[in-house]
């Protein structure tokens, strides 16, 4: 089983590179053939990536969450997978390059530095932990996609205000659609993050004797959850639309990134598995 895992480890960055190139080419040139085939290439890549992650889980007898670079691979998968679902639901195909780029970067980093971890702490073999981490990662993927659409919204907004009618104007969907994509991604991210928090609250006190509700990672995640919760609620109540929604999503994303950096580097946490 190691042979196919190693082969896929090399193949995946190449495939993501191909998907990114196809989406980027289509963004600039709008060719019918590329427009139809890029989704197929993305599907094949995701299928192989899923096979790779399952293979690792079976081969090493633990979910691939035991090192930063295993996590990176899951992030790469979850970003592209979330985008794929969004593209299928909305049939808006012009924005893929901006999202797939993130998957490409994460997968390259993962493939370069990933190691075969046969021996890991027993806690990392727990299925609930796997579910908790995957939900959290998919949630963060959702808010990342939301932020990308937010940035695209701001770009188009500025182009329209400045009477610039170039590539951005011609190839991006309308402001309203970008706002919807950003909002829906944020909602999906928020729901998954909620699930991760609930699983965490139930399972963490049993798994870690030194568990504390004042753990910096827990507090950081909770604040991110609160920021998105307020934004989503206000939008649903009708107080928020247009640029305000986008600005809120971007603030939420910056807050999430800052929280991750601070809690992973500065604070002391029980919540570190590797």
């Amino acid at each position: 089983m190691l042979q196919p895992i190693d082969s896929l480890n090399i193949l995946l960055p190449i495939l993501y590179c191909l998907v990114f190139a196809a989406y980027l080419y289509d963004f600039f040139n709008e060719k019918k053939f590329v427009n139809n085939s890029k989704r197929i290439i993305l599907f094949v890549t995701l299928f192989l990536h899923l096979f790779y992650l399952i293979s690792r889980t079976i081969e090493f007898d633990h979910p691939p969450i035991t090192s930063k670079f295993e996590i990176f691979s899951i992030i790469a998968f979850s970003i592209s997978f979330s985008y794929f679902i969004l593209e299928l639901l909305t049939d808006i195909r012009g924005t893929g390059a901006f999202i797939i780029l993130f998957s490409l970067v994460f997968q390259i980093a993962s493939s370069l530095f990933i190691e075969h971890n046969f021996v890991v702490p027993e806690v990392l073999r727990n299925r609930l932990l796997g579910l908790h981490v995957i939900n959290a990662l998919l949630g963060y993927s959702g808010i990342t996609i939301s932020a990308v659409y937010g940035l695209l919204f701001i770009l188009l907004f500025k182009n329209l205000k400045a009477n610039k009618f170039g590539l951005i104007f011609n190839r991006l969907p309308s402001l309203e659609i970008l706002e919807k994509l950003s909002f829906y991604s944020a909602v999906i991210g928020f729901i998954l993050l909620t699930a991760a928090i609930i699983i965490g609250i139930i399972w963490l006190p049993n798994a870690f004797p030194n568990f504390s509700y004042f753990d910096p990672k827990l507090i950081g995640t909770f604040f991110v959850w609160i920021v998105y919760g307020i934004g989503i609620l206000r939008k649903l109540l009708g107080n928020f639309y247009g640029k305000k929604v986008i600005v809120f999503s971007l603030i939420g994303f910056v807050f999430a990134i800052m929280s991750l950096i601070v809690t992973n580097t500065l604070g002391k946490t029980f919540h570190s598995f590797y």
């Binding site: 309308s174 402001l175 919807k180």
Partner: peptide
Amino acid sequence: QVVEKIFSN
């Protein structure tokens, strides 16, 4: 055409 770049429906 510009209106359609701002509003979707």
